[in-house]
Amino acid sequence: MTSNFTKSTTFVPIFKLKRRDLFKISLDPFPDITGRNKFKAVFDGFVVEVHDESDMKEIFSSGCYGRGSNSRSTPACLRNEKEPVELPFPVKETLVLSYEEAFFLMYFLEVLEITDAKDRILSPEELFTKFNELNSYFTRRIVAYIYLKSKNWIIRDGTKFGSDFLIYKKSIRIFHASFIVHVIEESPKSQKDLQGHHRTAENSAKDLLYLTVHPPEDDNGEKVTLDSLEKFKVTELIVRRFNFVSFKTK
């Protein structure tokens, strides 16, 4: 007996809309500093924070970078809440940037100026070295981050789902995440890892994306520098369980 598939197997990402009435919607994926000074952030040795409220609004509204220090995600200054959350003691909210977000805005987009606690401007080389010291996976994460940004994804931290990133279409205020992203150096370590990652993705109505970061072919164990980042390569693997119901036979 022969069967013919009547439906194409072309992969289509999941784009699930959110309610939009609670937020001021912005679809500009990159901050614009035309006619003004760079945004300013402070790196205290562990965390990168933006303190100025107007900078917080513009950075978050242009690509959903960072999260409110007193919020789960969107800073309170951008939420239209009827009854703001009251804290037991007053704390000024800041915008906390991940290392990848901070480095991308500072080095690649050149819209952010980062100083240390003594108000000294930090160079890209200093931050790159420090971020690698604090997170040994920073190099491969920033390579994957740039790769995803080149495809216009909105990128958020994926810790909640045991991953490196979550990626969204257009804005986190319009769509739910489409992919849970794991950044790896080789194929998934075991079948158990793959099953666990896939179950998490399936239970949250997302797809699973593995990004494998390949170091330069001429890498001889030398220390990675900013100049060598462009020599890295990224390959992607999308994993989705085959759904027999989605296909019909004649």
Results as ranks from 00 to 15, higher is better:
residue 2 T to S: 12
residue 2 T to A: 12
residue 3 S to K: 13
residue 4 N to V: 14
residue 4 N to D: 10
residue 5 F to D: 13
residue 6 T to A: 10
residue 7 K to V: 14
residue 7 K to N: 10
residue 8 S to I: 03
residue 10 T to A: 13
residue 11 F to N: 08
residue 11 F to P: 04
residue 12 V to W: 08
residue 13 P to V: 00
residue 13 P to C: 09
residue 14 I to F: 14
residue 14 I to S: 09
residue 15 F to Y: 10
residue 17 L to I: 14
residue 19 R to C: 02
residue 19 R to S: 15
residue 20 R to M: 14
residue 23 F to N: 10
residue 23 F to T: 14
residue 27 L to N: 09
residue 28 D to T: 15
residue 33 I to H: 00
residue 33 I to D: 04
residue 34 T to A: 07
residue 34 T to M: 09
residue 35 G to I: 01
residue 41 A to G: 09
residue 45 G to W: 04
residue 45 G to Y: 05
residue 47 V to F: 11
residue 50 V to C: 05
residue 50 V to H: 02
residue 51 H to K: 15
residue 54 S to D: 15
residue 54 S to G: 07
residue 54 S to L: 14
residue 56 M to W: 06
residue 58 E to C: 09
residue 61 S to E: 15
residue 63 G to L: 04
residue 66 G to K: 02
residue 70 N to V: 03
residue 72 R to W: 05
residue 72 R to L: 06
residue 74 T to Y: 01
residue 74 T to N: 07
residue 74 T to K: 09
residue 75 P to T: 11
residue 77 C to F: 08
residue 78 L to E: 09
residue 78 L to V: 09
residue 80 N to E: 13
residue 80 N to L: 12
residue 80 N to P: 05
residue 81 E to T: 15
residue 81 E to I: 15
residue 84 P to S: 05
residue 84 P to F: 04
residue 85 V to W: 03
residue 85 V to N: 07
residue 85 V to L: 12
residue 86 E to Q: 13
residue 87 L to V: 00
residue 88 P to I: 06
residue 88 P to N: 03
residue 89 F to C: 11
residue 95 L to P: 01
residue 96 V to E: 10
residue 99 Y to L: 03
residue 99 Y to C: 01
residue 103 F to V: 00
residue 105 L to K: 00
residue 105 L to G: 00
residue 107 Y to F: 12
residue 108 F to I: 10
residue 112 L to W: 00
residue 112 L to H: 02
residue 112 L to I: 04
residue 114 I to F: 03
residue 121 I to F: 06
residue 124 P to M: 01
residue 129 T to Y: 08
residue 130 K to A: 09
residue 131 F to C: 01
residue 135 N to E: 09
residue 135 N to I: 02
residue 136 S to T: 12
residue 138 F to M: 02
residue 138 F to Y: 06
residue 139 T to H: 07
residue 140 R to Y: 08
residue 141 R to P: 00
residue 145 Y to P: 00
residue 147 Y to R: 01
residue 148 L to H: 04
residue 149 K to P: 01
residue 149 K to F: 05
residue 152 N to Y: 11
residue 154 I to L: 11
residue 154 I to S: 01
residue 156 R to V: 05
residue 156 R to G: 07
residue 160 K to I: 14
residue 160 K to M: 11
residue 160 K to R: 15
residue 163 S to F: 07
residue 166 L to N: 03
residue 168 Y to K: 02
residue 170 K to N: 07
residue 172 I to T: 06
residue 172 I to D: 00
residue 173 R to T: 04
residue 175 F to M: 11
residue 176 H to A: 03
residue 176 H to E: 14
residue 176 H to M: 07
residue 179 F to H: 02
residue 188 P to G: 06
residue 188 P to L: 05
residue 188 P to Y: 01
residue 191 Q to T: 13
residue 191 Q to P: 06
residue 193 D to T: 11
residue 195 Q to I: 13
residue 197 H to T: 01
residue 197 H to C: 03
residue 198 H to M: 15
residue 206 K to Y: 02
residue 207 D to F: 01
residue 212 T to L: 06
residue 213 V to N: 06
residue 214 H to E: 13
residue 216 P to N: 05
residue 220 N to M: 12
residue 220 N to T: 10
residue 222 E to D: 08
residue 222 E to M: 05
residue 229 L to D: 04
residue 231 K to V: 04
residue 232 F to V: 00
residue 234 V to C: 07
residue 236 E to Q: 15
residue 237 L to Y: 13
residue 238 I to L: 10
residue 240 R to Y: 03
residue 241 R to T: 10
residue 246 S to C: 14
residue 246 S to A: 13
residue 249 T to L: 15
